[in-house]
């Protein structure tokens, strides 16, 4: 679909009506994210709550290998808090002087350790399904944040009439094909928020999705901030260049 849009950008929406291609699953509801739009930013409190949901719920199956604990300082945790959060995980280090690998508490500079040693171990523990790494999950799925949120709130149990689920599968409104191996990960009160926010299913889903959006694109705010000044600068420069061009061409019949 993006391809079509890209092509039409050249020819002033020559093919705009073509954009309604059908897909298997219904479009997930669009959420009013704080980071929507050209100037949106992340809500630090939400990201911190989202990290809590990830660490307490998602991490039991899903890796987050591209995030280092030190990155958490960007979402408002202090250096000491980051050290504490990191120390709750164990990472492998070594070899030591005797040549053995050993486990030690994680430090800020470590990446989040993966729950499984490798893909085979992950599949073995999950009935053959592979819980994907979540580091880029929002950028790696069509529909982005809305889709991830939709999956988290889109379970239906029992499934709609006439649907026969395969062994070990769950019905989800927004998953392509509707049969998803992941059991509903969240429910009301699955975690307890320190800031007093009520941990409804939808709240947790939104928080963890916002957090995963940040992990997918941690430079989003910096990018937009820099972008605004760059574009404003270019508009001024281009205006000057246009005036200069007009001045220079003023003595030519063309």
């Amino acid at each position: 679909m993006k391809k079509i849009l890209a092509a039409t950008a050249l020819a002033a929406a020559l093919w705009a009506p073509a954009a309604g291609a059908s897909s298997e699953a219904p479009t997930p509801p669009s959420v009013e994210w704080s980071f929507n739009g050209l100037f949106g930013t992340f809500d630090r409190g939400q990201l911190q709550r989202g990290y809590q949901v990830y660490a307490e719920v998602c991490h039991s199956c899903h890796a987050l290998s591209l995030m280092a604990f030190r990155n958490l300082q960007q979402i408002g945790f202090s250096e000491e808090q980051v050290a504490q959060l990191a120390a709750q995980f164990e990472v492998q280090d070594g070899p030591n002087d005797e040549g053995d690998m050993f486990m030690r508490p994680a430090r800020a500079s470590d990446h989040v350790p993966s729950p499984f040693a490798n893909e085979q171990a992950a599949r073995f523990a999950n009935n053959g399904a592979y819980p994907p790494d979540q580091s880029l999950i929002v950028k790696a799925r069509k529909g982005g944040s809305d889709y991830i949120h939709g999956i988290l709130v889109g379970y239906r149990d029992p499934p709609p009439e006439g649907v026969t689920l395969n062994e070990g599968m769950h019905f989800n409104d927004y998953f392509p094909g509707h049969q998803i191996a992941m059991a509903p990960p969240l429910s009301d009160g699955r975690v307890e928020y320190a800031d007093g926010t009520e941990a409804t299913l939808d709240q947790q889903a939104k928080d963890v999705t916002a957090f995963l959006t940040w992990v997918s694109e941690p430079t989003l705010e910096e990018r937009r901030r820099l972008g605004i000044s760059v574009i404003l600068f270019l508009i001024v420069l281009t205006g000057l260049l246009y005036a200069l061009k007009r001045q220079i061409w003023s003595d030519v019949d063309h």
Binding site: F233, L234, L240, L244, I248
Partner: peptide
């Protein structure tokens, strides 16, 4: 006209060089 062009040229040059 000449002054205006010179001014424009210098202003644009400076802004462009900064960029």
């Amino acid at each position: 006209g000449e002054t205006r062009r010179d001014f424009l040229l210098i202003a644009t040059g400076v802004v462009g060089a900064v960029g």
